[in-house]
Amino acid sequence: MTVLGIAPALPLHAAGKYVAGAYVVFVLLILIYVTIMAVRLGRMERQLVELNRDLARRDETMTTDPERERDAGGDPDARREPAPMSGAGRPGDSPL
């Protein structure tokens, strides 16, 4: 036997629609709030993907630059730009 089966019947005749309305308002408010937060989370996730892509691109540039420098006969260490983030410049490292 289910819980609803043994539960007493609710007197939904006259006041039922008002009580249901009040509780639906409560649930709707929570749902709207959670939906807005979900949209924001989705936006944040997209920004995170973009950030990871930028990081990968930067790592790629940093690994290819010394070879170009060597071909040109220059000193790679002297012309390389310092990494803006400490500890995040190594390939495979994630600042996140």
Binding site: M37, R40, L41, M44, Q47, L48, L51, D54, L55, R58, P84, M85, A88, P95, L96
Partner: peptide
């Protein structure tokens, strides 16, 4: 707490992006 966590994460991400890209 949920909203604070979301706002805090967004701020941290913006700061990380600033440090990464200048």
């Amino acid at each position: 707490k949920y909203e604070m966590a979301a706002k805090n994460t967004r701020i941290q991400m913006r700061s990380l992006r600033r440090r990464l890209l200048g």
